[in-house]
Structure formats: structure tokens, C-alpha cells
């Protein structure tokens, strides 16, 4: 079966529908599936629920889908960098479910691993715990969190072979593996697709079993906060 598609629009053909849930990889603007997000914008799919740690900025990342009002709900841990997001949220046009960051990552991992729920101490005694089952183990209280299974996962990796084995680069790995795992279908965009046999099997970060469709493309890879230090005088 051929996994490699010519471009993002082709790779998403037939998998998008209004009201669907999409798990997206990335942390801030680092390691986000920018080409697939642009293609979803172009496709005009509406009423989307996104499980994604962040919501991008106004003109990049998931932010571009907020501008076009394609997003109905966000499941995120931190959404601070997006003015349009805040405007829609305060106006009641956008729903947000705040998830602690580790809970969100584990919900994706668990959903992808066939685990419908798990207990965690994170959030006990806070707003996050309201309405959730509490259970004591060994004298400590935990809450039940549900695994996430998304209709579609969109992720960004550094390199892939044509069978979908993925390698990520530095901190651009972040939410991409758990997001990929929890999708019924996963589409990955990478900077380079190499022939099978050219990646060391011991160095694969995400096995191709999780990846159904694949594209290669040019990435902008925008930096959210450039922070540097001065060179000391030699």
C-alpha cells in the first residue's frame, strides 16, 4: 500500500468532515503540521474540535483556522498567544476545555493504546477534577481521565521513509507521537522522505504502523520567541 501522497490536499482527500475531532502535534509553533493545517483551511471543513496543546498565533498554526471560524472547540493546556482566540472565546463563539499538559498527552497516548481511561493525581482538588470519578489507591486520591480517540491525527516529523516510519528532530517531537497514536487515521508531513532501508531501525521514533498517509514539503518553521545571548568578547 502506497502511503506517500503528492501534497497536503491529496493526503487529506476523503478524510475530512464537518464536526470531526482532530488531534494535532506541536508545542507552540514548534513541530506543528503547518502544511496540513493550511490545507484544512483551504478545504473549509467546519465545526472542528482540536486536541492540541496550543492554538497557534493569529496568523500561523491553528490560528489560521480560527480566523476562518472553522474551529468549534479546543482541548488545550495553554492558549495565551492568540488574540483572535481570546476574542472568540470571550464572545462565547469558541468552546475551550483546559487540560493539564501531561493529562492531555497521556489522554492521547492512552487513546491510541486502547486504554479508555486512566487515573492521575494531576488536578485533584482543582477545577479540573470537578465531575470526574475519584478513587483512592494506596492512601492517595486520583481522578479518572479519558483516553482520546480522534477522527484524524495530523503531525509533523523531520524524516520519514516511504512506509511511514518517522524520526523527529529535537524538541519538535513534543506532542507529535501521542497525537499520531490517537488518530483513527494519521497524516504526517515531513521535511524529507527517504527510501526504505536508509533509516536505522533502532532510531525510529514512531513506527509506521501509526502513519497512514505521508507528504513531503517545505516548512516555514516560524520561531515564536527568538531569545539569544551576547557573544562574550574573545
Amino acid at each position: 500500500m502506497k502511503k506517500v501522497y503528492p501534497d497536503a490536499a491529496a493526503a487529506l482527500d476523503g478524510v475530512l468532515f464537518d464536526g470531526m475531532t482532530i488531534a494535532a502535534g506541536g508545542f507552540g509553533l514548534c513541530g506543528i503540521p503547518e502544511l496540513l493545517l493550511a490545507a484544512i483551511k483551504k478545504a473549509g471543513t467546519k465545526d472542528l474540535t482540536f486536541a492540541s496543546n496550543n492554538a497557534g498565533v493569529d496568523d500561523f498554526g491553528i490560528g489560521i483556522l480560527l480566523q476562518t471560524r472553522q474551529v468549534r472547540k479546543m482541548m488545550s493546556s495553554y492558549v495565551g498567544e492568540n488574540a483572535e482566540f481570546m476574542r472568540q472565546y470571550l464572545a462565547g463563539e469558541l468552546e475551550i476545555e483546559f487540560n493539564p499538559q501531561g493529562t492531555l498527552a497521556e489522554r492521547m497516548r492512552a487513546g491510541g493504546a486502547g486504554i479508555p481511561g486512566f487515573y492521575t493525581k494531576t488536578g485533584v482538588g482543582t477545577q479540573v477534577a470537578e465531575g470526574k470519578e475519584h478513587k483512592d489507591f494506596d492512601g492517595e486520591t486520583y481522578i479518572l481521565e479519558r483516553g482520546i480517540v480522534a477522527d484524524l491525527a495530523i503531525v509533523k516529523a523531520w524524516k520519514a521513509d516511504d512506509t511511514g516510519n518517522l524520526i523527529f528532530r529535537k524538541t519538535a517531537r513534543n506532542f507529535n507521537p501521542p497525537a499520531a497514536m490517537c488518530g483513527k487515521i494519521c497524516v504526517a508531513e515531513v521535511e524529507e522522505i527517504v527510501p526504505r532501508g536508509s533509516l536505522d531501525p533502532d532510531h525510529i521514533h514512531l513506527p509506521g504502523i501509526y502513519v497512514h498517509r505521508l507528504i513531503q514539503g517545505e516548512h516555514e518553521k516560524r520561531i515564536e520567541q527568538v531569545t539569544t545571548r551576547k557573544r562574550e568578547d574573545a
Partner: peptide, 12 residues
């Protein structure tokens, strides 16, 4: 803006 990883950190 959200809790980010703070709730996980203090619990763990």
C-alpha cells in the same frame, strides 16, 4: 490562558 504543565508538575 491555561494551566500548561503546572498541575502535572505540582502533583508529580
Amino acid at each position: 490562558k491555561g494551566m500548561g504543565g503546572a498541575m502535572d508538575l505540582v502533583a508529580g
